[in-house]
Lab assay of single mutants.
Amino acid sequence: MATVKFKYKGEEKEVDISKIKKVWRVGKMISFTWDEGGGKTGRGAVSEKDAPKELLQMLEKQ
């Protein structure tokens, strides 16, 4: 499965696309949330040019 790689608060992170729940556009950035388990929700953002095609497809479906 595809993953999204991004930096959050200076830390490199990687999230499996299948865990992503919500995707939206903020200017030229793609923001998203995912389920971290245990009732926690993670947040992240990646530039439109660095976003994997699967993430962009999720954005178009909404």
Rank of each mutant, 00 (worst) to 15 (best):
L59W: 05
V23S: 04
E54A: 05
K22F: 14
G27C: 15
V46C: 05
K21T: 11
G44V: 12
Y8G: 01
K61W: 09
D16A: 14
R43V: 11
V46S: 03
T33A: 13
L59A: 10
S47N: 08
M29S: 14
Q57V: 14
E11A: 06
E12F: 10
M1R: 04
M1W: 07
A2T: 13
K19N: 14
E48S: 04
G27T: 11
L59Y: 11
R25C: 15
E14N: 03
S18A: 12
G37K: 05
E11N: 10
D16H: 08
E11P: 00
V46M: 09
V26I: 11
S31K: 06
G39I: 09
M1H: 15
G27R: 07
K28L: 11
Y8W: 11
V26T: 08
E60C: 15
S31N: 11
V4T: 01
S18C: 11
V23L: 07
L55V: 04
G38N: 09
F32R: 00
A51R: 02
I17S: 03
A51C: 14
K7G: 04
R43P: 10
V15R: 01
Q57D: 10
K9C: 15
R43T: 15
K22I: 12
V26A: 10
T41M: 15
G42L: 13
D16R: 04
E36N: 05
T3F: 03
R43N: 14
K22M: 14
D35W: 07
F32H: 00
M29D: 09
K7I: 13
G42V: 08
K7V: 07
A51I: 07
K28N: 13
V4S: 00
S47W: 04
E36R: 04
Q57Y: 09
G39F: 04
S31W: 06
E12H: 06
L56G: 05
K53Q: 13
E60L: 07
L59D: 03
E36Q: 11
A51N: 02
S18Q: 10
W34E: 00
V15T: 03
A51Y: 02
I17W: 01
K7M: 14
I20K: 00
Q62L: 12
D50V: 07
E60H: 06
S31D: 13
K61M: 10
K49E: 06
K49A: 14
F6S: 05
M1N: 14
W34D: 00
W24A: 06
T3A: 03
A45E: 15
G44H: 05
L59T: 10
Q62A: 15
L56W: 11
K21W: 14
G39A: 13
W24Q: 14
K61R: 04
V46F: 02
V46P: 00
S18H: 05
T41C: 14
K13M: 07
G42D: 12
I17R: 02
G37Q: 10
D50Y: 08
F32V: 05
A45W: 11
S18V: 11
W34V: 02
G37Y: 09
K7D: 12
I20R: 00
M58L: 11
E11W: 03
T41L: 09
K9A: 05
K19L: 14
Q57F: 07
D50K: 04
K9F: 09
Q62T: 13
R25F: 12
W34S: 01
K9P: 01
G10Y: 01
Y8H: 10
Q62K: 14
Q62D: 14
V46L: 04
M29E: 13
D50W: 10
Q57A: 10
R43C: 15
D50N: 06
E11L: 06
T33H: 13
T41P: 07
K5N: 02
L55G: 00
A2I: 13
V23H: 02
G39H: 06
K53C: 15
K49H: 05
M29Y: 07
F32M: 03
A51E: 02
Q62V: 06
D35Y: 09
K19E: 10
V26W: 05
R25V: 06
D50R: 11
E11T: 08
G39M: 08
F6V: 14
Y8Q: 04
M58I: 12
K28W: 07
I20T: 02
L55K: 00
M58H: 07
K9E: 12
K19Q: 12
A45G: 14
Y8A: 02
G10C: 14
R25Y: 11
G38M: 06
K7N: 12
L59M: 06
A2D: 10
E48R: 06
D35M: 05
W24H: 15
K40G: 13
T41A: 10
T41G: 13
D35N: 12
T3E: 01
E12V: 13
K22D: 13
S31Q: 10
S47C: 13
E48F: 04
G38E: 08
K28R: 09
Y8C: 14
S18T: 07
K49P: 09
A45N: 14
T33G: 04
G39W: 04
A2L: 06
E60T: 09
E54L: 05
S31E: 13
W24V: 10
L55Q: 00
G42C: 15
V26E: 14
K49Y: 08
L56K: 13
V4D: 00
K49Q: 08
T33F: 11
G42F: 10
L59V: 10
L56Q: 11
T41R: 07
L55W: 03
K53W: 09
G42E: 09
L55I: 03
K28F: 05
G10S: 02
G38V: 08
V15H: 01
E54Q: 08
E60V: 09
F6G: 02
K19Y: 13
D16E: 10
G38W: 07
G10M: 02
K28P: 12
I17L: 11
V15F: 01
V46Q: 03
L56R: 09
I30T: 02
F32W: 01
M29P: 02
G37W: 09
D50C: 14
K5L: 02
K22N: 11
T41K: 13
Q62W: 03
K22P: 02
E11Q: 12
K5M: 02
K22R: 10
M1F: 09
K22G: 14
G39S: 13
G27A: 15
K40N: 09
E14I: 05
V23C: 10
A51Q: 03
G38R: 08
S31C: 12
D50G: 10
K28A: 04
L59I: 08
K5Y: 02
K21D: 11
V26S: 13
K28E: 12
E12M: 14
G37T: 11
F32E: 00
D35K: 04
K53A: 03
V26K: 09
K5V: 03
Q62S: 14
K5W: 01
R43I: 12
R25T: 10
G37R: 04
E14Q: 03
